[in-house]
């Protein structure tokens, strides 16, 4: 059974993602890497109301029987851990990131915190956006260089050193996406577009 302190991180992270409406009642999944294993949310459990039994342990390197209980996107999490420096991974359905993914090829941050944290947030497209197979192949490639990526029409995968670190990437990216969406909505010219400065586009 999961240690109380570790469970507390899962519980807080899950609650924030739900309270901020980044997921539906049962969607989204969060995990952390721990001693050659992945601790990951149980399939069918509600992220906002996690209990210790809802955190499942599965092998980091191979598919084991934990797959019978763990999140649908477990394989994406596994490939992120195996191919990047991630210690924790969050998958959420951030509404503004998803909206912008349907009309743009990357999310360019306009707000100061977004520029400081991300500059731009990459968007990728996969054949079957709801399935884990394509995402497991494509998402880790992007997360080698970026803290977060948006899968078009689906949601984000974010990495971090800890669950809270990954959580900041999810919430920060959504904040930047929301600001960009509302800024663009009136169709007016920006007074100053920081994203055109300091080699931003080459990031």
């Amino acid at each position: 059974m999961i240690e109380p302190e570790t469970f507390k991180q899962f519980k807080i992270t899950g609650k924030i993602l739900t309270d901020h409406r980044y997921n539906t009642s049962h969607s989204g999944n969060i995990s952390m890497r721990s001693g050659g294993k992945i601790l990951i949310k149980r399939r069918g459990a509600m992220l906002g109301y996690l209990e210790p039994e809802d955190i499942i342990e599965t092998d980091l390197y191979t598919t084991d029987s934990g797959i019978m209980l763990s999140s649908t996107e477990t394989e994406v999490h596994r490939q992120i851990y195996l191919n990047t420096d991630a210690m924790a991974v969050i998958h959420a359905h951030n509404p503004f990131c998803v909206i912008l993914s349907l009309i743009e090829d990357e999310i360019t941050c306009l707000d100061a915190e977004g520029i400081y944290m991300y500059r731009k947030i990459p968007i990728i497209e996969v054949e079957n956006p709801a399935g884990p197979t394509d995402a497991a192949r494509e998402v880790p490639k992007v997360l080698k260089d970026y803290p977060i990526v948006v899968v078009r029409a689906h949601g984000v995968f974010a990495k971090g050193n800890t669950l809270f670190d990954a959580l900041q990437n999810v919430t920060g990216a959504e904040q930047s996406a929301m600001i960009r969406y509302y800024t663009m909505a009136p169709g007016k010219r920006l007074k100053r577009d920081y994203s055109t400065e300091k080699y931003f586009s080459e990031w």
Binding site: T63, S65, I67, M68, L69, S70, T72
Partner: peptide
């Protein structure tokens, strides 16, 4: 078939380990 391939229970758990996947679960 797309759905069967997406769900880990059918595409990975039962496929790789058979029903014996339930032993540890």
């Amino acid at each position: 078939i797309d759905k069967i391939k997406v769900v880990p229970t059918t595409s990975q758990g039962l496929a790789l380990l058979g029903t014996a996947a339930l032993v540890k679960v």
